[in-house]
């Protein structure tokens, strides 16, 4: 199936917006919204290489993980939103700068990945690398449980996007779904184990 070039770049744009949004937003509701949208973009790109039915596993799993985190966070009550820090290296400007460096690195390394994984479309490479890079950046900038889990889910989403082009095993798709759901459940468990501490941090 030939996909018009401009359409295949729409999900990449979506992933760019959601991954940067995840990095910049301080509100957990926005974060989970960005995560859900991120899985939609990822699913869209996976359909370039996988049948629609199999690709939908990624979307359903991602949304289930998002719902798990959302319900848990909702149960914890409305703790104050994390205050925005203006100091380096936590400020919004710094994060945006770091995100743009990641984006530049992704664009620079795309041709090389194209030679390593032949037959893979450029939007999928950029989407996958972007998610993995932003996820790693996220992990490097935070020690908060929810954000760590969001970072890990983003890294995994980026990897799964790239790996989907080379491996179509149903067992592996199932196992990776278990890993994603497990990460969300582990995150939910860790969040509920620390409600008081997080509330203290935000005060």
């Amino acid at each position: 199936m030939t996909i018009p070039t401009f359409i295949s770049w729409i999900p990449v744009g979506l992933l760019l917006v959601t991954s940067i949004g995840l990095l910049l937003s301080r509100d957990w509701r926005w974060n989970l919204g960005f995560l859900a949208a991120q899985y939609l973009g990822m699913f869209w790109l996976v359909t370039f290489h996988w049948p629609f039915g199999l690709a939908s596993i990624k979307l359903v799993t991602g949304w289930m993980a998002t719902a798990t985190l959302g319900v848990t966070r909702l149960e914890m009550g409305d703790t104050p939103t994390e205050p925005e820090s203006t100091q380096m290296p936590q400020g919004r400007f710094f994060r945006l700068l770091a995100a743009s460096i990641v984006a530049i690195l992704v664009i620079a390394s795309t041709p090389q990945v194209e030679t390593i994984i032949p037959g893979i479309s450029r939007p999928v490479i950029i989407g996958g690398l972007l998610l993995a890079g932003m996820g790693l950046l996220h992990l490097g900038l935070t020690a908060e449980v929810l954000r760590v889990i969001l970072g890990l889910l983003t890294v995994m989403a980026g990897f799964e996007l790239l790996y989907a082009t080379v491996e179509t095993s149903i067992l592996l798709a199932g196992l990776l779904s278990i890993v994603n759901l497990g990460l969300a459940l582990a995150g939910a468990y860790l969040m509920t184990a620390a409600p008081s501490e997080e509330a203290e941090e935000f005060e």
């Binding site: 993995a132 760590v148 970072g151 890990l152 995994m156 860790l190 509920t192 184990a193 620390a194």
Partner: peptide
């Protein structure tokens, strides 16, 4: 345990072990 807040150790453990998979 559910009553104990997570420290940096368990988060790093989770991060490092998960990063190995890709």
């Amino acid at each position: 345990p559910p009553s104990q807040r997570p420290g940096r150790g368990i988060l790093r453990y989770l991060i490092f072990q998960t990063l190995a998979v890709p």
